[in-house]
Design a protein around this nucleic acid. Structure first.
Length: 586
RNA sequence: GGCCCCGUAGCUCAGUUGGAUAGAGCAACUGCCUUCUAAGCAGUAGGUCUCAGGUUCGAAUCCUGACGGGGUCGCCA
C-alpha cells in the first residue's frame, strides 16, 4: 500500500468533481500535480502542489483554488486536518490508523511491500559490465557491474519485465591479440622457452591455463602452422576461457546475467545482421558516402581525408555523422553496436539502459541517435555513466599498473573486504559522481561505515525478537498475531517518524526506478537505520519506549510488529541492492 | 577549439526531477555506559548552493554566458 499513490487518486477525484461542478475548466492538465511528503514534517504528512500548478489555467488565485480543494479533502475520512499554506500548498495530516494499516500490510506480506509500483510497464533491457573478454575483471569494472545489477534488481522489484545483458566484444583486433597471446602460452606449455612477452601482447599469467588447455586438446598439431590456420581455433578457446573467468568474477559479486550476447555472432549467423541493419538504414536514406571534416582544435597529424560510409547521426541530434566501415572495409565498433541495439528493439525492448564507464561519455549521443533511427523513434536508450573509482587503503591511493600486467583484480577486492561492502559502497554515491573506495574503512565496525551501520540495524531488529522469545515463554510472534496488536502505543515522535519513513518506501522505489537511480535506496536505508538506532538509544533513558517489556505483552506485541516492519523494509532494500541482511553481526 | 559530466558547510556527499526556513556523515566542541548490544546515542557550531543574467507564483534544481575541475574528440573497443 502506497499512501502517496492513494492520495494522488483521491485528489484526482476531487479535481474531477470540481470540474464536473463547473468550478474548474474541463480541459485542465493534471499531469504536474504531485503528492509528496512536505519538506518540514511539522506541516503534516502529505503535501500537494495542485492549486499552484492549476491556478493559472483555471484563472484562479492559487490560495483561493487551494481553499476550494481543501474544503473537499476535509470530507475524506482518513484526513484529520487540511491546511493551506505558503503560496498555495495544501497540507494534509492523516489519521494514525492509516499508518497502522501500512504497518499491518508490511507485517502480513513483507516480501511484496513496495513491489510492483509500475505494474503494466514495458520491458526493459539493462546492459552492463560488457568488459572485453581479454582478461580478468579489475576493480574498475566493479562499479558498473554493481550499479547495473542493482538497477536491474530495482526495476524488477518495481515491476518492469527485465532482461540483464552482457555484450561480449569478441570481434575486432583485441581478440586476435588475445589469440596470439594465448598461442604463445600454448608453445610455452609444450616446453618452449618463450622468453619475455613481446610488447603489444597480453602478458598476464592468467593465460597460462589457456595455453595448457590448448596443448592438451591439440597436442603439437598447431605448432609451426601459419597464423591463419590456428587463429580462429585459439581465439575461440581463449575467449571461452576468459568468459568463464569473467562469469566467475561476477559470481563473486553475485551477479548473473540473463543473456550473453556475442558481437561476433551478429556478422557470423545465417545472415550478416550488421549488413542487414545498414541496408535498412540505407533504404531510409540515413546512410551515405561522404567526407568528414577533420577534428577541430588540436590538429590530428595522421588525419587523412577520405570518402567513407557514414550514418546520418546528425539527423538525430549528434554532432557529426559517424563512420560505419574502417579503411580496410571491416565494420567499425559502432556499426555492430547499431545492429546489436537493433536486435534489442526487435526482441521487444522499447526501453534500453546501457551502463558505461566514464571514458565512453562521448559515445552517448551517437548511440542514442542510432537507437532512434533503427526503432524509428519507438525506442529509447538511457545511458548511465559510472565515474571512476579511486581505490584507497587508509586514505592512501592504491596504485594500479596495467603495463606490467598487474592490476588490482575485482576478485582481490572482493576477497579482501567481502561482497556486501563492495556492493553497498559502490551504490552509496550517485553513479555520475566519482567515488573513493577505502579498503580499510569498509571493514570498520563503526557508524563511520555505512555498510555496517545499515546491516547492524537489521541485526538489532533480529536481536529484539531473540530477546522477546527468551523473556516471554508464551510469545506468539507470528505475522497474524502481530497484525492484530493494538498499535496506538506507538505514539512517540521517534516511532511516528519511522512509521512515516516506512510509508514512504513504495514511493521511493517508484521514484528510484523511474529515474534509474539505485543510490536513492542506499541513502534511504541509511536514514532508516539511523532513525532506528536513535529510537533504540532513546529506550535507555525512557524505559517505556523499550521494545520488549516482559510484564506488558500487548505493548510488546505492538512494538514487535513495528520492529518487524523496520526489519522487513531494511531487508527489502538491502535485497534489492544485493547486500545480505544479517541476523547478527559477528 | 567542439561536445559530455561535475562545482552545495573546513572535508566527503544527499537534496524525492521546480516547492515552503538547503540537509546528513566526518572533523571540532559539550554530554551520555549497574541499560532490549556504547559496534551506539543526544546536543552545539558551521552556508553568498562557484559567479552574472534570464524564465515564473517559486530556482541548488530549467535556459544563456563566464570561471574552475575531470573526461572525450574518424579508420580503438
Amino acid at each position: 500500500m502506497n499512501i502517496f499513490a492513494l492520495f494522488e487518486r483521491r485528489i484526482a477525484d476531487v479535481l474531477a468533481r470540481l470540474t464536473k461542478a463547473g468550478a474548474l475548466p474541463d480541459d485542465l492538465d493534471f499531469s504536474r500535480v504531485v503528492v509528496e511528503p512536505p519538506r518540514d514534517a511539522t506541516h503534516g504528512d502529505l503535501s500537494t502542489n495542485a492549486a499552484m500548478v492549476l491556478a493559472k489555467a483555471a484563472k484562479l488565485n492559487p490560495r483561493a483554488l487551494a481553499d476550494l480543494i481543501a474544503a473537499e479533502l476535509k470530507n475524506d475520512p482518513s484526513v484529520v486536518e487540511v491546511d493551506v499554506a505558503g503560496p498555495g500548498f495544501i497540507n494534509l495530516t492523516l489519521r494514525d490508523e492509516l499508518f497502522y494499516d501500512v504497518l499491518r500490510a508490511i507485517v502480513l506480506d513483507p516480501e511484496n511491500y513496495g513491489r510492483g509500483g509500475v505494474a503494466g510497464a514495458g520491458a526493459v533491457n539493462v546492459e552492463y559490465v560488457s568488459a572485453n573478454p581479454t582478461g580478468p575483471m579489475h576493480v574498475g569494472h566493479a562499479r558498473g557491474a554493481v550499479f547495473g545489477d542493482a538497477l536491474a534488481g530495482l526495476l524488477a522489484f518495481a515491476g518492469y519485465p527485465l532482461s540483464k545483458e552482457y555484450y561480449i566484444n569478441d570481434a575486432g583486433a583485441q581478440v586476435d591479440v588475445l589469440a596470439r597471446s594465448a598461442y604463445l602460452r600454448y608453445r610455452e606449455a609444450l616446453g618452449e622457452d618463450i622468453g619475455a612477452i613481446p610488447e603489444g601482447l597480453y602478458p598476464g599469467d592468467y593465460l597460462k591455463p589457456v595455453g595448457e588447455k590448448l596443448a592438451e586438446t591439440h597436442s603439437t598439431a598447431l605448432l609451426g602452422k601459419p597464423e591463419a590456420e590456428w587463429l580462429a581455433t585459439v581465439r575461440d578457446t581463449a575467449i571461452n576461457a576468459m568468459m568463464d573467468m569473467i562469469r566467475d568474477d561476477l559470481a563473486a559479486l553475485n551477479i548473473r546475467h540473463d543473456v550473453f550476447f556475442s558481437e561476433r555472432s551478429l556478422a557470423q549467423g545465417k545472415t550478416d545482421e550488421i549488413a542487414a541493419t545498414i541496408a535498412d538504414l540505407r533504404d531510409r536514406g540515413l546512410i551515405y558516402e561522404g567526407r568528414l571534416p577533420p577534428p577541430k582544435g588540436q590538429p590530428a597529424d595522421d588525419w587523412e581525408d577520405r570518402e567513407q560510409t557514414l550514418f546520418k547521426a546528425t539527423e538525430f541530434g549528434d554532432d557529426v555523422d559517424r563512420p560505419l566501415l574502417k579503411s580496410d572495409g571491416s565494420y567499425t565498433y559502432f556499426a555492430s553496436d547499431i545492429a546489436y541495439h537493433y536486435s534489442k528493439f526487435q526482441r521487444g525492448f522499447a526501453t534500453m539502459i546501457d551502463v558505461w564507464g566514464a571514458d565512453h561519455g562521448g559515445y552517448i549521443k551517437r548511440m542514442q541517435a542510432a537507437v532512434a533511427a533503427v526503432s524509428q523513434g519507438k525506442a529509447e536508450l538511457d545511458v548511465k555513466i559510472c565515474q571512476l573509482v579511486r581505490l584507497l587503503r587508509n586514505g592512501e591511493q592504491v596504485k594500479m599498473s596495467k603495463r606490467a600486467g598487474e592490476f588490482v583484480t575485482l576478485r582481490d577486492v572482493v576477497d579482501e573486504v567481502g561482497r556486501d561492502a563492495v556492493r553497498f559502497m559502490m551504490l552509496f554515491r550517485k553513479n555520475d559522481a566519482p567515488l573513493d573506495f577505502d579498503l580499510a574503512k569498509v571493514l570498520e565496525q563503526s557508524k563511520d561505515n555505512p555498510v555496517f551501520y545499515v546491516q547492524y540495524a537489521h541485526a538489532r531488529c533480529a536481536s529484539v525478537f531473540r530477546q522477546a522469545a527468551e523473556g516471554i515463554a508464551t510469545l506468539n510472534a507470528a505475522p497474524e498475531a502481530l497484525a492484530t496488536a493494538d498499535y496506538t502505543i506507538l505514539a512517540d515522535s521517534a516511532e511516528r517518524d519511522i512509521l512515516r519513513q516506512l510509508a514512504a518506501y513504495p514511493r521511493l522505489i517508484e521514484g528510484a526506478a523511474k529515474s534509474h537511480e539505485p543510490h536513492r535506496i542506499a541513502f534511504f536505508l541509511y536514514e532508516l537505520a539511523s532513525a532506528f538506532h536513535s529510537l533504540w538509544n532513546k529506550g535507555k533513558d525512557l524505559p517505556q519506549l523499550r521494545f520488549v517489556k516482559l510484564d506488558d505483552v500487548p505493548s510488546t506485541m505492538a512494538r514487535l510488529a513495528f520492529v518487524r516492519a523496520v526489519r522487513s523494509v531494511l531487508a527489502s532494500g538491502l535485497n534489492i541492492l544485493g547486500v545480505t541482511a544479517p541476523e547478527e553481526m559477528r
